[in-house]
Simulated scan of single mutants.
Amino acid sequence: MDSNQYCIGICDDELVFRKKILDEVKHLCAEQGFPAEFVLFASGEEVISSEKKLDLLLLDEEIADGRQNLLNGKDVRRILENRFSKTYIICVTSYDKYMQDAFGQNVIGFVNKRELETSNRLEDLIVRCIDLLQGASKIAYIESKHNDLEVHFFDGSVKTVRGALEAIAKEMQQYEIYVKCHRSYIVNFNYVKAVIGTFSDFRLLDDTLIPISRGLKTEVQRKYDRFIDQRVSLLLGE
């Protein structure tokens, strides 16, 4: 794969839908100027055993539905989350009953197979994924240390730069996914795994604990609640 390309996986046990979703996603990526290669999977087992580093996975929630000893969509999501995978997931389903289960740390949203050609929902989700994969959204958190800033990225890499956290915080206000939660920290909400106590700390995906200042607690909670509301709205298609 070209180093400038992203890797998008499509997992569905029905060939007709694999091809249909592939055609739609290829078209959307071309429209957005988003360089990508595509990998097709016919089962959850193929996804889990693949050596490909997937940036985005369109996952059939009903894969292997009713068949014992085979991974379904929920199993695949759970395994990827336990691996601390950075793969964003769009759940694809034919039935609304699966929507209530289409949640997870890296789940961006869901789309109904019946609406692939009649709704803009898939396009909206792809655009959101592109936004998350590109630019500043790759930053997990920033820590201020004396006169330096340690910038921690989603892939685990760290870059040290000179600068003041306050100046960076003002610059990053344009991104709703970021919040200054402490005099020494800026956090990306997409990298938060859990809130500890009554907003005393954030636990990140890599289990790092980031403190939340008492003086910033109210504003941090307001922004985080709004972020969660927006994420739920996107998941539910509201």
Rank of each mutant, 00 (worst) to 15 (best):
I108K: 00
G73S: 08
S184R: 13
L125N: 01
V107K: 03
E171Y: 10
I79Q: 09
T218Y: 00
R183Q: 12
N120G: 07
I63G: 04
Y98D: 13
F227T: 06
A102Y: 02
V220Y: 00
L205D: 05
L71W: 12
Y141V: 04
Y191C: 08
K97F: 07
V16S: 10
F17K: 04
D2R: 12
V107D: 03
F199Q: 08
F41L: 03
A102W: 01
A167T: 15
I139W: 08
K217Y: 00
H146T: 06
K113V: 11
A164R: 15
L204H: 02
E24C: 14
S200L: 11
L236Q: 12
R18G: 03
E176T: 10
C11N: 05
K74G: 00
A136P: 02
Q173E: 15
E81L: 02
L132I: 10
V158T: 13
D23S: 11
T218N: 06
I196E: 11
G104E: 06
V161A: 07
V232T: 14
I21W: 12
N190K: 08
S200H: 09
Q105A: 06
I228F: 01
E166H: 14
T208L: 04
F227R: 03
T198K: 11
A64L: 03
R67N: 09
L165S: 09
Q68K: 13
C91F: 05
I63W: 04
V39H: 09
I108E: 01
V195L: 11
D229A: 11
I89H: 02
E117W: 08
I186V: 13
S49R: 13
T208Q: 11
K113R: 12
L234F: 06
I21H: 09
I90F: 05
Q174Y: 11
A167Y: 11
L236W: 01
